[in-house]
């Protein structure tokens, strides 16, 4: 592989990681959605580049799915939800921005340490891509943990899922990748519509999932 191809792949995967960090400290929901859309676009570029480098045209389909579904449709739908439910104010965080960023740095270091000693013989691109993907996955998990709002939790999950797609497309010649990205899109669509479907707002007057914890453990009142 030419050094240029390698550098471009690195740049795009690294871009996704940086956007993951940006997601961590946004304190407005609309900003969170915009950064997520950017990350999805970075993902689709990265997948498209993998399609060129690996000479695997079917990956273009995955790239298009990422671009259209996660870059355009889902952020658009979430913007609508946010506007309709009037929750475009601040995002409540369980842990403040500073400690979250530090934890995030720790997670990136962890993923590099985990992946680096593995597979000396495999292409260096695969290995580094794997480290980036694992970091994006862990940061997505961190975002789900540190936010209390249902919409930002969804974004955290989707960002986690971006990392998964990055890993799957980075694994050379992995079969059924396109099918997996479709399966994941279904999952994500389910989650987004779940907010509507489960009518979290109407039932609880809030999309703060803390409101869901009212009777954690045991039913207090008789039905």
């Amino acid at each position: 592989m030419s050094p240029l191809a390698f550098d471009i792949a690195h740049l795009l995967a690294g871009g996704m990681l940086v956007l993951s960090f940006l997601l961590l400290y946004q304190d407005r929901i609309t900003a969170v959605l915009n950064v997520f859309a950017l990350q999805a676009i970075a993902l689709s570029l990265s997948v498209a580049w993998q399609a060129v480098v690996q000479d695997a045209p079917h990956l273009i389909v995955t790239a298009l799915i990422a671009l259209v579904v996660k870059g355009l449709i889902i952020p658009g739908a979430l913007h609508r939800i946010v506007r309709r439910l009037e929750i475009h104010r601040e995002v409540e965080q369980v842990i403040g921005g500073g400690p979250t960023m530090l934890t995030g740095l720790g997670l990136v270091a962890l993923s590099i340490l985990l992946v680096q000693p593995v597979k000396q013989d495999v292409g260096i691109l695969t290995r580094e891509d794997l480290a980036f993907a694992l970091a994006v996955i862990l940061l997505g998990l961190l975002m789900m943990i540190t936010r209390r709002n249902a919409v930002t939790q969804i974004v955290g999950f989707m960002s986690l899922e971006n990392g998964l797609v990055l890993a799957a497309t980075g694994a050379r010649g992995m079969p059924l990748v396109v099918e997996f990205s479709v399966a994941f899109s279904i999952l994500v669509a389910f989650i987004v519509f779940g907010v509507f479907l489960f009518r979290i707002r109407e039932r609880f007057d809030s999309v703060d999932v803390g409101a869901l914890d009212r009777f954690r453990g045991e039913r207090r009142d008789q039905r």
Binding site: M144, F157, L187, F190, G194, F204, L212, R214, R219
Partner: peptide, 17 residues
């Protein structure tokens, strides 16, 4: 019911992760 929705959402998010 609110309980059922809480249970489904929790199952959903934890199961998805």
């Amino acid at each position: 019911t609110p309980e059922a929705i809480e249970a489904a959402w929790k199952y959903f998010i934890l199961g998805s992760v």
